[in-house]
């Protein structure tokens, strides 16, 4: 029996977002969208998290932080990149300090498009992440290296 799907705790990190996507992520917690009905909690602590939600592109400063946080999340874990910036670097792509999307630093499992991504699609993305999470758990149980 898997409890993972029923209790995904997220960690929200702003890599270098314009805050547009961040607002939308937080909007998911409001009564209108209420992600807690799926058991989703915003933890703010990598050691408690299952889903790593990143907004904004990766810059030279944030890349090491993203890497560290990713390492500190216990497996199984999935990464959800929210917004175009997180996918490719978006409008900031050509900036001198931007490395690009989240996948330049850590493996990404789900991309949520949009600028800013709408709360509905963020929720959709996270629900999609849940089945990936479940697959990873099974893989981990079998003894394959968790990623």
């Amino acid at each position: 029996m898997s409890y993972l799907k029923k209790s995904p705790w997220i960690l929200h990190y702003d890599a270098s977002s314009c805050n547009g996507c961040d607002i939308e992520v937080l909007a998911c917690l409001t009564p209108l969208y209420d992600v807690e009905r799926f058991g989703i909690i915003n933890t703010g602590n990598p050691k408690h998290a299952d889903i790593f939600v990143i907004t904004g592109g990766i810059n030279e400063q944030s890349s090491v932080v993203v890497k560290n946080i990713y390492d500190q999340i216990p497996s199984p874990k999935v990464v959800v990149a929210v917004g175009i910036c997180a996918a490719t670097g978006g409008v900031f792509r050509e900036c001198y300090n931007i490395k690009g999307g989240v996948n330049t630093t850590i493996p990404v499992d789900v991309y949520v498009p949009g600028c800013a991504a709408r709360p509905e699609s963020i929720i959709d993305g996270i629900v999609a992440a849940l089945s990936i999470l479940e697959e990873k758990r099974k893989a981990m149980k079998k003894g394959e290296t968790p990623l």
Binding site: Y3, S7, D50, S75
Partner: peptide, 11 residues
């Protein structure tokens, strides 16, 4: 219960 169950399934 789901939460606790999940926590025990983690690394």
């Amino acid at each position: 219960f789901y939460d606790i169950g999940k926590l025990f399934q983690k690394e």
